[in-house]
Amino acid sequence: MILSVLYFIYVVSLGSSRMIGDEIGGDPGGMLLPLVLSIFMFIASTILFITDRADDAYRSGGVQKSQRGLFILTIVVSVLYVALMRHVGFIVTTNILLVTLTFAYMREGVKREDLALWGGGVVGSLALLIAIYTIGRRVTRYLLLASRQGVIPKFLGSNGMTFGITLVLVGILFALVYIAGKKLLSRHDAAAPIHSLFQAGFIAMVSTELLYLIFRQLFLVELVRGIISW
Protein backbone atom coordinates (compact mmCIF):
# COMPACT_ATOMS: atom_id res chain seq x y z
CA MET A 1 0.00 0.00 0.00
CA ILE A 2 2.84 2.33 0.93
CA LEU A 3 4.65 1.34 -2.25
CA SER A 4 1.63 2.20 -4.38
CA VAL A 5 1.42 5.66 -2.76
CA LEU A 6 5.14 6.17 -3.38
CA TYR A 7 4.64 5.01 -6.97
CA PHE A 8 1.77 7.51 -7.34
CA ILE A 9 3.95 10.37 -6.06
CA TYR A 10 6.78 9.28 -8.37
CA VAL A 11 4.45 9.18 -11.41
CA VAL A 12 3.03 12.63 -10.67
CA SER A 13 6.51 14.06 -10.09
CA LEU A 14 7.66 12.73 -13.46
CA GLY A 15 5.02 14.71 -15.33
CA SER A 16 3.46 13.74 -18.63
CA SER A 17 5.32 13.62 -21.90
CA ARG A 18 3.61 13.73 -25.27
CA MET A 19 4.33 11.72 -28.37
CA ILE A 20 6.92 13.34 -30.64
CA GLY A 21 5.00 15.00 -33.50
CA ASP A 22 1.69 15.15 -31.59
CA GLU A 23 0.91 18.72 -32.61
CA ILE A 24 -2.73 17.99 -33.40
CA GLY A 25 -3.25 16.21 -30.06
CA GLY A 26 -4.86 12.89 -29.23
CA ASP A 27 -1.95 11.22 -27.41
CA PRO A 28 -2.98 10.42 -23.84
CA GLY A 29 0.61 11.08 -22.73
CA GLY A 30 3.13 9.00 -20.86
CA MET A 31 1.67 9.62 -17.40
CA LEU A 32 -1.86 8.29 -17.83
CA LEU A 33 -1.24 4.54 -17.65
CA PRO A 34 1.26 4.65 -14.75
CA LEU A 35 -1.19 6.89 -12.90
CA VAL A 36 -4.13 4.52 -13.44
CA LEU A 37 -1.85 1.66 -12.42
CA SER A 38 -0.81 3.33 -9.17
CA ILE A 39 -4.46 4.02 -8.26
CA PHE A 40 -5.37 0.40 -9.04
CA MET A 41 -2.43 -0.86 -6.97
CA PHE A 42 -3.53 1.30 -4.06
CA ILE A 43 -7.10 -0.05 -4.24
CA ALA A 44 -5.93 -3.68 -4.57
CA SER A 45 -3.44 -3.40 -1.73
CA THR A 46 -6.07 -1.73 0.49
CA ILE A 47 -8.49 -4.60 -0.19
CA LEU A 48 -5.71 -7.08 0.60
CA PHE A 49 -4.77 -5.21 3.76
CA ILE A 50 -8.35 -5.59 4.98
CA THR A 51 -9.13 -9.10 3.73
CA ASP A 52 -5.79 -10.91 3.64
CA ARG A 53 -5.52 -11.28 7.41
CA ALA A 54 -8.06 -14.06 7.15
CA ASP A 55 -5.79 -15.85 4.69
CA ASP A 56 -2.84 -15.97 7.07
CA ALA A 57 -3.13 -19.74 7.25
CA TYR A 58 -2.05 -19.97 3.61
CA ARG A 59 1.22 -18.21 4.19
CA SER A 60 4.29 -20.36 3.98
CA GLY A 61 5.91 -18.61 6.95
CA GLY A 62 9.10 -16.66 7.40
CA VAL A 63 12.62 -17.82 8.18
CA GLN A 64 12.95 -20.40 10.98
CA LYS A 65 14.99 -19.25 13.97
CA SER A 66 17.70 -21.82 13.32
CA GLN A 67 18.10 -20.60 9.72
CA ARG A 68 18.31 -16.87 10.45
CA GLY A 69 22.11 -16.83 10.60
CA LEU A 70 22.42 -18.56 7.22
CA PHE A 71 19.74 -16.34 5.70
CA ILE A 72 21.46 -13.13 6.79
CA LEU A 73 24.87 -14.49 5.77
CA THR A 74 23.53 -15.25 2.28
CA ILE A 75 22.15 -11.73 1.90
CA VAL A 76 25.37 -10.11 3.18
CA VAL A 77 27.62 -12.27 0.99
CA SER A 78 25.38 -11.63 -2.06
CA VAL A 79 25.45 -7.84 -1.52
CA LEU A 80 29.24 -7.92 -1.09
CA TYR A 81 29.54 -10.07 -4.23
CA VAL A 82 27.62 -7.52 -6.30
CA ALA A 83 29.47 -4.57 -4.76
CA LEU A 84 32.98 -6.00 -4.97
CA MET A 85 32.95 -7.94 -8.21
CA ARG A 86 33.98 -4.92 -10.28
CA HIS A 87 37.03 -4.16 -8.15
CA VAL A 88 38.12 -7.60 -6.97
CA GLY A 89 37.19 -9.61 -10.04
CA PHE A 90 35.09 -12.63 -10.98
CA ILE A 91 37.49 -15.41 -9.96
CA VAL A 92 38.16 -14.19 -6.41
CA THR A 93 34.63 -13.05 -5.50
CA THR A 94 32.92 -16.14 -6.95
CA ASN A 95 35.29 -18.50 -5.18
CA ILE A 96 34.90 -16.74 -1.82
CA LEU A 97 31.09 -16.67 -2.17
CA LEU A 98 30.94 -20.38 -2.97
CA VAL A 99 33.37 -21.50 -0.23
CA THR A 100 31.62 -19.35 2.38
CA LEU A 101 28.07 -20.37 1.60
CA THR A 102 28.73 -24.05 0.90
CA PHE A 103 30.76 -24.42 4.11
CA ALA A 104 28.21 -22.52 6.22
CA TYR A 105 25.31 -24.53 4.76
CA MET A 106 27.13 -27.82 5.36
CA ARG A 107 27.81 -26.81 8.95
CA GLU A 108 24.13 -25.78 9.18
CA GLY A 109 24.86 -22.41 10.75
CA VAL A 110 27.33 -19.61 11.28
CA LYS A 111 29.60 -20.80 14.12
CA ARG A 112 32.30 -18.77 15.83
CA GLU A 113 34.60 -21.80 16.21
CA ASP A 114 34.55 -22.35 12.44
CA LEU A 115 35.89 -18.89 11.60
CA ALA A 116 39.61 -19.75 11.61
CA LEU A 117 38.96 -22.91 9.59
CA TRP A 118 36.83 -20.96 7.11
CA GLY A 119 39.58 -18.33 6.71
CA GLY A 120 42.15 -21.04 6.01
CA GLY A 121 39.79 -22.70 3.54
CA VAL A 122 39.19 -19.47 1.63
CA VAL A 123 42.91 -18.74 1.36
CA GLY A 124 43.77 -22.34 0.45
CA SER A 125 41.11 -22.79 -2.22
CA LEU A 126 41.83 -19.35 -3.64
CA ALA A 127 45.57 -20.07 -3.90
CA LEU A 128 44.97 -23.40 -5.60
CA LEU A 129 42.35 -21.96 -7.92
CA ILE A 130 44.58 -19.08 -8.98
CA ALA A 131 47.40 -21.53 -9.67
CA ILE A 132 45.17 -23.75 -11.83
CA TYR A 133 43.57 -20.72 -13.50
CA THR A 134 47.03 -19.36 -14.36
CA ILE A 135 48.08 -22.66 -15.92
CA GLY A 136 44.84 -22.72 -17.90
CA ARG A 137 45.36 -19.14 -19.11
CA ARG A 138 48.92 -19.90 -20.20
CA VAL A 139 47.81 -22.94 -22.17
CA THR A 140 45.03 -20.96 -23.83
CA ARG A 141 47.38 -18.11 -24.73
CA TYR A 142 49.93 -20.56 -26.11
CA LEU A 143 47.30 -22.26 -28.27
CA LEU A 144 46.00 -18.94 -29.61
CA LEU A 145 49.47 -17.58 -30.37
CA ALA A 146 50.94 -20.80 -31.76
CA SER A 147 47.98 -21.38 -34.07
CA ARG A 148 48.29 -17.82 -35.37
CA GLN A 149 52.01 -18.26 -35.98
CA GLY A 150 51.43 -21.60 -37.72
CA VAL A 151 53.39 -23.61 -35.10
CA ILE A 152 50.34 -25.81 -34.52
CA PRO A 153 47.35 -26.49 -36.84
CA LYS A 154 45.00 -23.48 -37.05
CA PHE A 155 41.91 -25.33 -35.79
CA LEU A 156 43.60 -25.85 -32.42
CA GLY A 157 43.40 -22.11 -31.85
CA SER A 158 39.63 -21.90 -32.35
CA ASN A 159 37.34 -20.98 -29.44
CA GLY A 160 35.90 -24.45 -29.09
CA MET A 161 39.28 -26.21 -29.21
CA THR A 162 41.05 -23.91 -26.74
CA PHE A 163 38.06 -24.31 -24.42
CA GLY A 164 38.11 -28.11 -24.79
CA ILE A 165 41.88 -28.51 -24.32
CA THR A 166 41.98 -26.16 -21.32
CA LEU A 167 38.96 -27.92 -19.81
CA VAL A 168 40.64 -31.33 -20.07
CA LEU A 169 43.87 -29.99 -18.60
CA VAL A 170 42.30 -28.22 -15.63
CA GLY A 171 40.07 -31.26 -15.14
CA ILE A 172 43.18 -33.43 -14.69
CA LEU A 173 44.67 -30.88 -12.27
CA PHE A 174 41.46 -30.78 -10.22
CA ALA A 175 41.40 -34.59 -10.11
CA LEU A 176 44.96 -34.57 -8.74
CA VAL A 177 44.01 -31.95 -6.13
CA TYR A 178 41.03 -34.08 -5.11
CA ILE A 179 43.09 -37.26 -4.72
CA ALA A 180 45.79 -35.42 -2.77
CA GLY A 181 43.23 -33.73 -0.53
CA LYS A 182 41.46 -37.00 0.21
CA LYS A 183 44.78 -38.66 1.13
CA LEU A 184 45.76 -35.79 3.41
CA LEU A 185 42.41 -35.83 5.16
CA SER A 186 42.16 -39.62 5.53
CA ARG A 187 43.60 -39.48 9.08
CA HIS A 188 40.85 -37.09 10.21
CA ASP A 189 37.51 -38.30 11.51
CA ALA A 190 34.93 -38.40 8.65
CA ALA A 191 32.60 -36.12 10.60
CA ALA A 192 35.30 -33.47 11.27
CA PRO A 193 34.54 -29.98 9.93
CA ILE A 194 37.75 -30.07 7.87
CA HIS A 195 36.03 -32.58 5.54
CA SER A 196 33.15 -30.14 4.96
CA LEU A 197 35.66 -27.39 4.31
CA PHE A 198 37.59 -29.47 1.80
CA GLN A 199 34.37 -30.39 0.00
CA ALA A 200 33.23 -26.75 0.00
CA GLY A 201 36.60 -25.50 -1.22
CA PHE A 202 36.89 -28.13 -3.92
CA ILE A 203 33.37 -27.56 -5.26
CA ALA A 204 33.97 -23.80 -5.21
CA MET A 205 37.21 -24.13 -7.20
CA VAL A 206 35.75 -26.45 -9.83
CA SER A 207 32.56 -24.39 -10.24
CA THR A 208 34.41 -21.07 -10.52
CA GLU A 209 36.89 -22.36 -13.11
CA LEU A 210 34.18 -24.15 -15.09
CA LEU A 211 31.99 -21.03 -15.18
CA TYR A 212 35.01 -18.99 -16.21
CA LEU A 213 35.86 -21.37 -19.05
CA ILE A 214 32.27 -21.57 -20.33
CA PHE A 215 31.43 -17.88 -20.19
CA ARG A 216 34.83 -16.32 -20.88
CA GLN A 217 36.45 -18.73 -23.28
CA LEU A 218 33.48 -20.27 -25.03
CA PHE A 219 31.01 -17.34 -25.06
CA LEU A 220 33.57 -14.51 -24.88
CA VAL A 221 31.75 -12.73 -22.03
CA GLU A 222 34.00 -10.05 -20.51
CA LEU A 223 34.22 -11.36 -16.93
CA VAL A 224 35.78 -8.72 -14.69
CA ARG A 225 39.46 -9.54 -14.01
CA GLY A 226 39.90 -7.29 -10.96
CA ILE A 227 43.06 -8.09 -9.02
CA ILE A 228 43.81 -11.22 -11.08
CA SER A 229 44.78 -9.18 -14.10
CA TRP A 230 46.50 -11.88 -16.16
Binding site: S78, T94, L101, T102, Y105, M106, S207, F215, V221
Partner: peptide
Amino acid sequence: QLLLPQILVLSFIGAYAIAGQ
Protein backbone atom coordinates in the same frame (compact mmCIF):
# COMPACT_ATOMS: atom_id res chain seq x y z
CA GLN B 1 23.43 -27.52 1.01
CA LEU B 2 25.59 -28.12 -2.07
CA LEU B 3 22.96 -27.15 -4.64
CA LEU B 4 21.79 -23.78 -3.30
CA PRO B 5 25.13 -21.91 -3.56
CA GLN B 6 25.51 -23.25 -7.10
CA ILE B 7 22.06 -21.95 -8.10
CA LEU B 8 22.88 -18.57 -6.57
CA VAL B 9 26.16 -18.25 -8.48
CA LEU B 10 24.59 -19.53 -11.72
CA SER B 11 21.88 -16.89 -11.33
CA PHE B 12 24.45 -14.14 -10.78
CA ILE B 13 26.69 -15.15 -13.64
CA GLY B 14 23.64 -15.52 -15.89
CA ALA B 15 22.45 -11.99 -15.12
CA TYR B 16 25.95 -10.64 -15.64
CA ALA B 17 26.64 -12.54 -18.87
CA ILE B 18 23.67 -11.01 -20.71
CA ALA B 19 25.69 -7.80 -20.99
CA GLY B 20 28.45 -9.61 -22.89
CA GLN B 21 31.36 -7.19 -23.20
